[in-house]
Design a protein around this nucleic acid. Structure first.
Lengths: 130, 130, 130, 130
DNA sequence: TTTT
DNA sequence: TTTT
């Protein structure tokens, strides 16, 4: 069992890429998740969690989310290792999202029509994926 | 919201340390969490997740767990940054445990007496903490 | 381990009561949580989950939330049994909240001033409790 | 979002049934989940949570689990209403499992062969489902 | 109706 | 008895 639930805001635009041979969509973003407590010396009060998602979910995320947007993410923790430029082994820990739920919608958003009624209004729209 | 649930096995003995000035106990271990799927090319089938715990929980973990033990962990994801030896900034992602539940007990364990039947057998013992 | 995470909307005002002798605050509400799928025959598309909370959290909830508000709840499932009016034994299953995070704020809300910008806007406000 | 994680023991054998027309497998069981705290007056220290599962998972559960077995369940809370015998409306709250992980294996178990190597040993075996 |  |  490996389950994660996060609610936080994107620190920047998601990055969308495609796997070289197979052309599968991958999106990366960082989620700023506020801590409930404050550091005794005013230190960092948020965790900045790297999130990755794949395929249809990657595209929905890349096409609909931007810096500052509030989302809920469910998924799991994935670890991997890779070779750094200096040849040393480095370890990566990130969250693989399998659901991303939009929890707000920009107030100044003008585009509130949307094709064929699909439109993530009021955070009550689930992302179709997989 | 920042919630994590893991079930897996310790890859080695937990490391117990104490904070310099204040002497607060900290334990670190890595949890091997099996994936449900297998890589198409026989790749890695487990995630190796760094876990940290504090105070009483750190001591209970260090005194009772060892390599191969099966546990359930609940907690949250914590990120931090630090200076690497070469001066570059590096990022760390780990799980801060706030509950660790023992789910097995070594079969070859001889010490199965304990006062008045109190003994963390069968994974039904909750770790008192905080 | 007994952990629950929900995101949904209140179906009505929370009910605030106090325990008879001790005067401890208790609040009850129902959370409508949309399902991701639709019934093949247009059946119910939401679960209506009973939630209870205690003490300070009960008061914050009762004083700040109303019908239609979007929240995230973390807690656990609690079961109990009781005597029905006809003397038969009945079983109750509900969620005991230990965190409630506000995820929206009513649009027509006039009270958006607050001292020095502190105001639970944008779902980024954590409920202090316990 | 509607997510549940439980670790507990079955209070009895699972019940396996099949839907009337379509013959889909359904299994029901109750999970006894110990509470971390004790009632001030020695009250109940466990929650008895109704769990339902479907199809392949229902069959695996019914064929492999019995009273007292320790499992981890992930799933969601589902509510429904029905007509009681006296005509009154009654509400049901239960957990729909989508993963069940075996965490122990009976000590006195003689049947440790199993067809084609499939055998839930050491709690490290995931239930294949869906 | 409750498990260890 | 159900929310948007």
């Amino acid at each position: 069992m490996n389950k994660v639930f996060l609610i936080g805001r994107l620190t920047r635009e998601p990055e969308l890429r495609f796997t070289p041979g197979t052309g599968i969509a991958v999106a990366n973003f960082t989620l700023a998740v506020d801590r409930n407590y404050v550091g005794q010396d005013g230190q960092k009060q948020a965790d900045f969690i790297p999130v990755i998602c794949w395929r249809k979910l990657a595209e929905v995320v890349a096409n609909n989310l931007g810096k500052g947007r509030l989302v809920a993410v469910s998924g799991s923790i994935q670890t991997s290792s890779y070779q750094a430029q200096d040849g040393s082994k480095r370890y990566k820990v990130e969250v693989v999202a399998d659901e991303v739920k939009f929890l707000d919608w920009p107030k100044d958003n003008k585009d509130d029509g949307g094709v064929d009624g699909f439109y993530p209004v009021d955070g009550d729209e689930d992302i179709p994926f997989r």
